[in-house]
Amino acid sequence: MRKKQLPHTCSRRGYARTMDDMSRESSKPVTRVQAFLKTHTKKNGEPVNAQAAEVIEKLQVLANEKPDSCTTQNTVQDALTIIFGPDKNGRSLANGRGVTNTKLAILRSI
């Protein structure tokens, strides 16, 4: 199981606070793909490890083929779902700990 995990570079900050900082810097809402790219690359722009580099390369190919999959807020049809498969156990990948699709839907409707 440990070999399948992708390390991130957001340290104790976490996904939620990283996404909040990203949304404050830009006027557009932050997508899961943008958060994934930010948290799995180092400050100099290189991927954290070879496994993360493979996923980032797949994201870039997918962005060229289906550009709307990288900009959508729909967690069922975005690029991360296409690459990793559907989220498991009701959880939402790259949105922080304990975030579910239901919670995201409620937060987006406010």
Rank of each mutant, 00 (worst) to 15 (best):
E57C: 10
V76G: 00
S92N: 03
S92G: 00
R17V: 00
A52V: 04
V33N: 05
K38W: 03
A94D: 07
N95C: 08
E57Y: 13
N89G: 01
K4R: 14
A105I: 02
N74F: 04
T9W: 02
N49E: 11
P67A: 00
E65D: 13
G90Y: 12
V99N: 09
K43F: 10
T102S: 11
R108E: 07
K4T: 02
I56T: 13
H8V: 06
L104D: 06
L6K: 13
R13V: 01
R24W: 03
E25C: 04
G90V: 03
K103T: 06
P7D: 07
C10M: 07
Q73I: 00
S92C: 12
F36C: 11
L104G: 05
M19N: 09
Q60C: 00
L6S: 05
K103F: 06
D20C: 00
D21I: 00
A105V: 06
E57H: 15
S69C: 02
R17T: 00
Q73M: 15
K28C: 10
L59G: 08
G96Q: 14
L6D: 07
T31R: 08
R97D: 10
I56M: 15
P86L: 01
T72F: 10
Q77P: 00
T9P: 04
A53T: 10
A16Y: 09
V99Y: 13
L104M: 14
K103W: 05
F84G: 06
A52W: 12
P86M: 03
A53P: 12
I56P: 15
L37R: 15
D78V: 01
N44G: 02
F36Y: 15
F36S: 04
T31F: 14
K42L: 01
Q34H: 11
K3Y: 05
V55Y: 11
Q34D: 13
P7M: 03
I56H: 15
G45M: 03
K42S: 01
G98V: 00
A16V: 12
S92V: 13
L6N: 08
T72W: 11
Q51P: 06
I110S: 10
Q73G: 08
E57W: 10
